[in-house]
Design a protein around this nucleic acid. Sequence first.
DNA 1: AGCGAACATGAGAATCATTCTCAATCAGCG
DNA 2: CGCTGATTGAGAATGATTCTCATGTTCGCT
Lengths: 140, 140
Amino acid sequence: MGEKPRRLTRQQQAVSDILDARGDFRSAQEWHAALKDDGSPVGLATVYRTLQSLADAGRIDVLRTAAGESLYRACSAGHHHHLVCRECGRTVEISAGEVERWAVATATAYGFTAVDHTVEIVGCCAPCSVRTPEGAREDA
Amino acid sequence: MGEKPRRLTRQQQAVSDILDARGDFRSAQEWHAALKDDGSPVGLATVYRTLQSLADAGRIDVLRTAAGESLYRACSAGHHHHLVCRECGRTVEISAGEVERWAVATATAYGFTAVDHTVEIVGCCAPCSVRTPEGAREDA
DNA sequence: AGCGAACATGAGAATCATTCTCAATCAGCG
DNA sequence: CGCTGATTGAGAATGATTCTCATGTTCGCT
């Protein structure tokens, strides 16, 4: 589950290219549509496969929406987390060595190894906060 | 999307009860099965509805598996995070005011409001680490 | 206690993202 | 240039979750 493709095909390059060209998070389906608009149609199944390979290889970012959809985006490099606006979907990339260290330390304290973590912060970005009529939100 | 039920029914109590009785994370489908075994069958649709209501009310924990399934568990109280074993599914509840503060501070720095966050740490618990033949794992 | 109306339930259909199937096609090697 | 096995893709299959809506219950009111 997650082998890197051995052969370089037009489709794989097309996917990789469009991810690089646009920098935002999109679902597999949306990338598939974008590819078609771009004049380089790629089968949906192939888009999924390629996206998965790239994600496994750590070359792209994956994000999970509340609805259970997976969003993909070109990933410059390194490990980082995201700050996502729940209204407009805008994302800010943040690095957090601090949290990184905390995660590993905590896990280790409980005897866990091969630790991996997920940190996601969602909120309302400034523009959206203004636009939104202060919904009664109950956070922790 | 997430009104608290106004009427108290046998089904809702049954769901709430079994969640309390067993303390582990299970998918809606599994709880549905457990309920049937317990002699208090509740329709699958109702299990989903009730679980959702409880989650919205903050009375139970929700966890997302890599496969996209939602897992639910009784939640004693307060906000906390989880350390999950990727092999056996064992979970350890951890409180992390530290990370909490970091999340809010970071979000605020970018002008975000109504902040919410997700922090999950997955790894191999001690027992499983021993049992597992040291798979070549690449972490951050 | 007895009614009635509104809300809750549940069986099965509907949705929808993602994965699988498998024959046709293509990349790279000799 | 011809092979051979990896890759592709259209559509079917999967599987969790949600929706539909007729029926069953709960609760307020008298």
